[in-house]
Structure formats: C-alpha cells, structure tokens
Design a protein around this nucleic acid. Structure first.
Lengths: 222, 222
DNA sequence: GCATTTATTTGCGTATGCATTAAAAAATGC
DNA sequence: GCATTTTTTAATGCATACGCAAATAAATGC
C-alpha cells in the first residue's frame, strides 16, 4: 500500500524506479507519459516531474513524441559507470582511513563483511549482493562527501539492473571479501594510501570480470 | 534575444542559470515559483521543471512554502566539489594518455595552454579563467567517459560562481601552466600514470590554495 | 499582557484543457 | 506502383484552475 504521506510525484519516482529495477519496465522499452500516468493512477503532471528526475539520474531518456525510453546499458556504459565508482569510492576509502574512526564507527562496515562471508557459505547470492551494497555505501558514507555519496548512489542504481542478471553468471565471489577486509583494516589502522590502492584494485578487478563476462555471453545491452 | 526555437522550460533553465552565475539571483536568496515565473514571463509549469532540473544539479534547493533557495557554497562544499573534480579529471587524464591521440587530436588542449600563457602575460584573469575552463573540459572530453563529462560539468558549474570571486584574490597562476604542459606531454607521449599523477597533484594543490584563501578571507559562504 | 485557539492568507501540488507540431495515414500525381 | 503532397492523428509543452495544508494574522480566554 503506497504511503499517503508522500506526494504523488515522489511516489511516481519510487514506483517507476522499482518497476525499472524489477524489469516490469524493461530496458529499451518506450512509454508515453499518459501510459505511465494510467499505470500509476495519477495525472501526467507528477509523472512528468518524476520522469525528469529519473532522466537526470540517467535511468531513462526523454524522447519527445516517442515516449520515455528506459535506458539500456551497453558494456561500454557499464565500463563508464564502473570507472566512476572506482575513482570516487577509492577516494572515500582514503578519506575514511584519514578520519581516525573508532572500531565502533566501523561496526556497520565490519558487519557487512561478515554477512558477505555468511552469505557465501550458504551460497546465497542475493544476500551477498545486499551485503556488498551495504559495504560499498557505508564505505562511501564514511568518506564524508555528500556529493560523492549522491553520485555513487546514482551510478549504483544504473548497474543494479545489470547486476541481477550477471550475478548468477559468475562464480561465487569468494576472494572478493579478502579485499573488503583489507580495506577495512587499512581504514581502521589509518592507512589512507593502502585503503585507496586496495579498493581501487578491487574495483578495477570487478570491472574487468564484468566486462569479460558480458563479452563472453555476448550481452550487448542490459 | 532569447531563441524562440527553444522550449520555455529549456529557456528557463538557461535564464536561471545565467542569472545565478551573474549574481542577479544571489546565493542564499529565496524565490517563489511565481516570482520566477513573472521574471521569466512564463507560467509556473516550465519554471517548475527548470527548477527541478537545476535542483538535481545542485545549484538550488526546493523548500516548499519557502521558495527555491539559490544554494550558497561553504568552504566545505568547495572542498567536496574539488575532490570530485580531482578524482574524475585525473582518471580522464589517465585515459586520455592511454588513447594514443595524435597531436592533431590534442590541438585544442595545446591551444588552451597557449592562451593561458598569453592571458598571464597580459594579466588578463578573465581570459585565463576562460582558457583554463577549456583546458579542463577538453581534458575530460579526451577521457571519453560521458558520465564523467556530465558530472564534471555539473561540479564546475557549482564552483563557477565562487571562482569569479576568488580569482581576483590570489596571485597570478603563473606556475599552474607548467602542470598543464606536463599533463599535455604525458598524454601525448602515452604515459597514463604520469598524466594521472601530475593532474591529481595539480588539482589537490588548487584545492589547497582555494581553501586557504577562503579561510584567510573569512569567506563562510559564496 | 501572554498563551492558545481560530481565522485568513497564500504557495504549492496536482489535474485539466488546449495549441502546437511531429509523426502517421491517406490521397494525389506521375 | 512509387514518390510526393496533403490530411489526419495524437503526444507533448504550457497555461490555467483549484483544493489543501502550512504559515501567518487575528481573536479569544485567562
């Protein structure tokens, strides 16, 4: 049941986002404003605002007279997004390591790592993905740069749809957590350069894996 | 004379942007939607869309019932923006240096550098700033990552207003162009690590200068 | 006088209608 | 038949109207 306390245009943003992620609004599909308005049972005005917002976040594109297109992601797009994430998250890791956080401050980060271990032990990929998301967003939060937080959230959204597809195509990310622990330790021990370098390599590696996977499976768009 | 071929909401974005940069809409000031609609001689609808767009780009904030606030930038904000620029531009420099560009491809970059030299010789700060902008945006373009281009453009907008203020408070950036030339050469010679490292230091230095300047002059908001 | 309630104003969020104009369909010429 | 023009359709961009709720002012009680 939709929260009545939200404005229609806020609800429209939420609803459209989740329908994009679920695939109900498929990548590459076109939709008229009036069609979306009917779908969400509201007038065109709030959907139009929502569509502008989601457009500015790169999830869709407005093509006058042709409807809004849910943007598909090509392997090149994925590479772009991963590069942005790599640079900004590495910066966050570096900053986090300079911030003299206590272990209590880093509890959330540590917990996410433990949950990834647990998820891997149970071969629960969804749980792993969820914990991995939490690790990365917590890392960015600790970097204390609101603009980086916003950008990373935006880019993470863009890859989210793709990851649900690719996640099940690759081997269990067992080694991945070693990196996470190393980053955690570097932050805890106050080694900015180490935190930065390791996280950067971690992300670059993830990008390489993904790009290779997309190539091998001939996935042109997601 | 406003271009009649643009839609009203596009014109609204342009007009509001330029009035924000010119200071006509001052940082920290509040404006009702209807006030802006009157100012731009159009209805609230396109103004509202423009305001949503500019809001998502961080130039202003929507505060229901209080009007849209033109966002002031604190020294902390400046630091955030510079950190984003540092990371993403450095990445662009690295990528540009990996791309095997010919000298012809780099002509625009070289020209911007020469113009900065010329501007410094004439002590023409405005011309210098314009050429500096061109250098940085061309560098990013050569990095071939559309998302980075968009983000950098957005962040550059945010500091633009501040720079017009601070530009005249500091000594002529004579040494700055040495870095630019070094980055240029690293790109031309295909040395990604060098291009990245130098540009990174260059930006970090610029940030340090600016932050110090803001502190010295007790500028809390711009 | 001060606090609390009530009345009034007013800015925003949303719905709706309409003119514009791009795209699709139909009609015409060759 | 095919190309070109004309007609029709319909999606958008914008203006306008209106109800709601927040902010402010006024009124009431103490």
């Amino acid at each position: 049941m939709p929260d009545k306390s939200l404005s229609s245009s806020q609800r429209a943003v939420q609803e459209l986002r989740s329908r994009i992620f679920s695939g109900e609004l498929a990548a590459g599909s076109d939709h008229l404003e009036s069609e979306l308005a009917d779908l969400l049972e509201m007038s065109r005005t709030p959907v139009r605002e929502a569509v502008l917002t989601l457009g500015s976040q790169g999830l869709l594109e407005l093509r006058p007279r042709k409807g809004v297109r849910i943007l598909p992601l090509s392997p090149e797009d994925m590479a772009e997004v991963y590069d942005v994430l790599t640079e900004l998250e590495s910066h966050a890791a570096e900053r986090a390591a300079s911030a003299n956080y206590s272990e209590a401050d880093l509890a959330e980060l540590a917990q996410a790592i433990d949950e990834m271990d647990a998820a891997i032990a149970k071969s629960d990929l969804d749980a792993w993905a969820e914990a991995d998301d939490r690790f990365h967003s917590e890392l960015v939060r600790l970097g204390r740069n609101s603009r980086i937080e916003a950008i990373v959230a935006m880019m993470s959204d863009q890859v989210r749809r793709a990851r649900t597809t690719t996640l099940f195509m690759r081997p269990l990310p067992t080694k991945s957590n070693e990196d996470h622990r190393a980053v955690y330790q570097a932050i805890r021990d106050g080694n900015p350069d180490t935190a930065r370098t390791i996280h950067r390599k971690h992300r670059q590696h993830a990008k390489a894996i993904l790009v290779e996977l997309l190539g091998k499976h001939r996935l042109r768009y997601l």
